[in-house]
Simulated assay, not measured.
Amino acid sequence: MSSAVNQAFGIDFYLGSKDELLTHISGSLKKPYSYIVTPNIDHVVQFQENEKLQKAYRLADKRICDSRILAPLLKSLGIEVKEVITGSDLTVSLLKKANQEKLSITLIGAAEQDVDKLKALYPYIHLYHYNPPMGFIEKPEEVQKCLDFIYANPSDLIFYAVGAPRQEILASMIDSSRRTGVGLCIGASILFAVGSLKRAPLWMQKAKIEWLHRMCSEPQRLIRRYVHDAVHILPIYVKERSGRRRSSQEVN
């Protein structure tokens, strides 16, 4: 499998395919703990100013491109990922694998009703679930409860479903000498996996406008975020492109 990465916006991106990634994950389930993050436009914007998120990304095993909007920006910078691997698609692939192979999953986040749906859809997964309270990442005692739960429930996979940058920061706090398994920061992917939220039709995904479907599905939560990201990604991209041009000219 290719292990090549390339950097943009301060992030080393994984360039391989989803099948290659799944093979890598399968081979890592019994190894010391590692985790995977899924950068998209919102993450890139947050990454520029959030030192804790920067550290979490630096410590991650893989940083996979989650966004069909981000991928063309990377391509214009000379970084061509083999395929966009959305967190939602990867989550479903891992749930199917876990169900078929009767693997165990520790899930941090997600409401009880969605966990019930998950258990019904994937009955052969051994599931450990803990849902921390809102704002937990700012409360050391609540963070410790999450860490204690993860250590107390060894599993093949750890799904962090508490939103960025909380899930990435939490994932980075696990001591790899204390447990095995592969962590994945999945955001709202569980909601899509169990049908609580509907994915965009395939034609919208291929047309790179899944973001529009999501925004229309959750306008109160996403309109402000998408406008914020659109305003901020442009100067970040221009700065990145200008810096790469300067570096190229200096080399020549």
Rank of each mutant, 00 (worst) to 15 (best):
Q220E: 10
S217F: 06
R244K: 15
I236Y: 04
I209N: 07
R241P: 04
W211C: 05
K206Q: 14
R225Y: 08
R224N: 12
R241L: 15
K208M: 01
K208Y: 04
R224A: 12
S217K: 09
L234T: 13
R224W: 09
E240P: 09
Q205W: 02
I223F: 08
W211S: 08
Y226D: 07
C216W: 07
A230H: 04
Q220K: 14
Y237Q: 01
L234K: 13
Q220G: 04
L222A: 04
I236A: 01
Y226Q: 09
V238G: 00
H232T: 01
L212T: 06
R224D: 07
M215G: 10
H232N: 15
D229N: 15
K208V: 02
D229K: 12
G243C: 03
A230T: 14
V231W: 13
E218G: 01
R244D: 04
R221C: 02
Y226I: 06
H213S: 11
M215A: 15
H213C: 04
Y237W: 13
H213W: 15
Y226V: 05
K239Q: 12
Q205N: 01
V227Q: 11
L234G: 06
K206V: 04
K239T: 13
L222V: 08
G243T: 03
E210V: 06
E240R: 09
I223T: 13
S242L: 15
E210N: 07
R225F: 06
R241T: 13
K208D: 12
V227K: 12
R244P: 02
R224S: 12
P219M: 01
I209V: 15
H228E: 14
R221M: 03
W211R: 09
A207Q: 12
R224H: 12
I236K: 00
S217C: 06
L234N: 05
I236S: 02
I233L: 11
K206T: 05
R244W: 02
A230S: 14
S217M: 10
C216D: 00
K206W: 09
I233F: 08
W211Q: 11
E218D: 11
P235C: 10
D229W: 12
H228L: 11
H232V: 00
Q205P: 00
R224P: 08
L212I: 11
I209Y: 02
I209L: 03
L212V: 13
R224Y: 10
K206I: 04
E210F: 05
S242R: 15
E240V: 10
R221H: 02
L212F: 13
S217E: 13
D229G: 12
E218K: 04
K206S: 08
G243F: 02
S242T: 14
L212A: 14
Y226K: 06
Y226G: 10
W211D: 10
M215K: 09
H228Y: 14
M204V: 00
A230E: 05
A207R: 14
A207H: 11
R224L: 09
R244H: 02
Y237E: 01
I209M: 05
R214E: 05
